[in-house]
Simulated scan of single mutants.
Amino acid sequence: MTSNETTQRVAIVTGGSGGIGRVVAERLAKDGMQVLVHYSGNPQRADEVVAAITAAGGTASSAQADVADEAQVEALFDTAEQRYGGVDVVVHTAGIMLLAPLTELKLDDLDRMHRVNIRGTFVVDQQAARRLRSGGALINFSTSVTKLALNNYTAYAASKGAVDAITLILARELRGRDITVNAVAPGPTATALFLEGKPQEVIDRLAKVPPLERLAVPEDVAEAVAFLAGPARWVNGQVIYANGGAI
């Protein structure tokens, strides 16, 4: 019998203080997991997520870390183990998106996305691979834009293409460990970050792309995460496109 069958499962959700990450944290808590809500720079938003989970009868707490700093991420996992006894699920939603045509993107912005989206994924996954208990699940966040090929997303999609590669190879490197490694690749999702600054006609056009003819809401994406974090033990080394059939 594995440890996660005898104790309550524990999840770390990076970027869990807002947007899709918040809804993922709340969903996993609803599914009975103890959740460590990671945040980068806004403790108040993380506290709001913890309060919402607690009010709904769940167990959660928050912790800060720079996902690209290996010492801070190691400390984040230490915190989860000290508070809850171990780690069974890691959902890495933390990332940044800076958009511009390739010819106009500032190289400083490219470097920022490389640090957070690629190095951050590598650092978090490295700790997850070392710390996850048997029966565990690691879920990275990619994007459907790697297939949709939308203008202005060149650098962002490139950074998430690296996440896909890390995911597929790490799943094989963990052979024999009973740990699944997958990525969720959302399409356009109605979060404040996505909607900000976009004209209504652009939003309406993107909503018509999927055959279901609407934007995703964070709960749609959290459903896919919950599947991979729980019952989907035979789904491994995959990128799951949660986009309503847009591609």
Rank of each mutant, 00 (worst) to 15 (best):
R115P: 05
G57E: 08
V50E: 01
P231N: 13
P188G: 00
A226M: 08
K198L: 14
D69R: 00
R9Q: 14
R131L: 13
E213L: 04
D108R: 08
D125F: 09
S40L: 12
L98D: 05
F77N: 10
N236M: 14
Y84A: 03
I96A: 10
T54V: 11
N117R: 12
T14D: 03
Y84G: 01
G237E: 09
M1W: 07
I203S: 04
V89L: 00
P101V: 06
R9K: 15
N140W: 03
S142P: 08
T54M: 05
T146S: 02
E26N: 06
A171V: 07
R119H: 07
A56Q: 05
A232L: 15
A65M: 09
N117Y: 10
E74D: 09
V49F: 04
L212Y: 05
Y39Q: 10
S144W: 03
A65C: 11
V35C: 02
A63F: 07
T103M: 03
E196M: 06
G120E: 10
D109G: 02
Y39T: 05
V91S: 08
V123R: 12
A11V: 08
A207T: 09
L76A: 11
N4Q: 14
R177Q: 08
G19Q: 15
A52F: 01
N152P: 03
V209L: 14
V23T: 14
V123H: 08
L132M: 05
T93Y: 04
T121P: 01
F227A: 15
L148N: 09
V13D: 04
M1C: 07
E223T: 14
A155K: 08
G58A: 01
A232Q: 13
T2F: 13
G86P: 00
A157E: 12
R45K: 12
Q200H: 03
D47C: 00
Q238T: 13
V145H: 04
G187M: 03
I166C: 02
V221W: 04
S142V: 13
L168P: 03
G197L: 15
K160E: 00
A55N: 07
N152E: 13
A155G: 11
G16H: 07
A51P: 05
H92M: 06
F122G: 12
I20A: 13
F227Q: 12
S62Q: 08
V217M: 13
